[in-house]
Design a protein around this nucleic acid. Sequence first.
DNA 1: GTCTATATCCAGATAGAC
DNA 2: GTCTATCTGGATATAGAC
Lengths: 203, 203
Amino acid sequence: MPRNKSQNQQLRDERREQILSQALMLFAKRGLAATKITDIADASAISQGLMYHYFSSKEAIFVELISRAFDRLNQACRWLEEQSMPPLEKITFALTELLKLLDQDEHAACYHLLIAQATASDAIPDEAKAIILRENTFPYESISRIMAAGQQEGTIKQYDADQLALIFWTSINGLAIYKAVHGTKYLAPNVEILVGMFQSNHL
Amino acid sequence: MPRNKSQNQQLRDERREQILSQALMLFAKRGLAATKITDIADASAISQGLMYHYFSSKEAIFVELISRAFDRLNQACRWLEEQSMPPLEKITFALTELLKLLDQDEHAACYHLLIAQATASDAIPDEAKAIILRENTFPYESISRIMAAGQQEGTIKQYDADQLALIFWTSINGLAIYKAVHGTKYLAPNVEILVGMFQSNHL
DNA sequence: GTCTATATCCAGATAGAC
DNA sequence: GTCTATCTGGATATAGAC
């Protein structure tokens, strides 16, 4: 019994996802240039030639991953802003979830690392650069708005909201990298330490 | 008039330093794999072939830079520990200096970025890995000791000192990367925000 | 010491057999 | 759809001229 079109398509999609998943790990750990297409093929347990039936090039895989990474991140930010929670609680919630992700969800941690790596590197495809340029500011602005709202309430410290957002994300990025390096030996820091940067003292 | 031996040696050393300096910038921005030896040669205004009179390989340059980066960092940590300053002041001083460095000293910022990049990447020479493994813990331990001393005094928050040290360095790393990416558009955050993570509230 | 020219190697991408 | 074999380009490293 031959498979029909939609079944074939589904199989193809699954394989694609599998390749993307393996590529994500490798790119996150080694970077784009140092990851060979054979590495991805080996990790995906397919031949190198077959890779080109699913993706037109190594760079195409990278670009798709970068695009997805920002989609996830920006969607999460949008969701957070929409919640009816006091601003300080949103910040605490976000930090808690991010630390949990880094600690427990290898896949999610790699997405975060990919963003950190890609934004830090000059040596990425132009298309990826364009995505970063377009999408990267949103998470900063989103957190900045929440910080500003918290300052109105007096629950968040009265520094420049953009600076607070900057430190929010750079701290998370730094932790993501540390986790990637030290793996097992990493023990997640107490969320309260991070929250302490933003929370007003006089509560 | 022919130059004597020591003059020749000096010239040679200067050229070597020049190459290292250019390589540092490139490695920090693009990573090891994505930096071609011709890039370094071009930036140093010498031919590609001549590179091999000064260094045996691209990797050798990288290893020397990593080694120097840790020498600088660890020496600075040692110096800080030796000062007769209250612990909290040491932390504030260190953060102030690090932010100033990131903001104003391109060269120093690249060293920091190189460490961040190299520790984050799997795709570096074994020799570089060995250096990182050997040298990387010192800065963490050093800051952790200062944190612990501050806790004894009651000037620093009573969280696990290792966690505080971890956050200290990962925050700086995150900022270093952000700075590298956004360059001109980066405005250094207020030191007090960072200090606020560590300083006891009841002062 | 410095350059140009060249050998070697390896990774990305393609072609063609099954 | 999947593999193996091959082409091609580019980067490292070397050799040899000046």
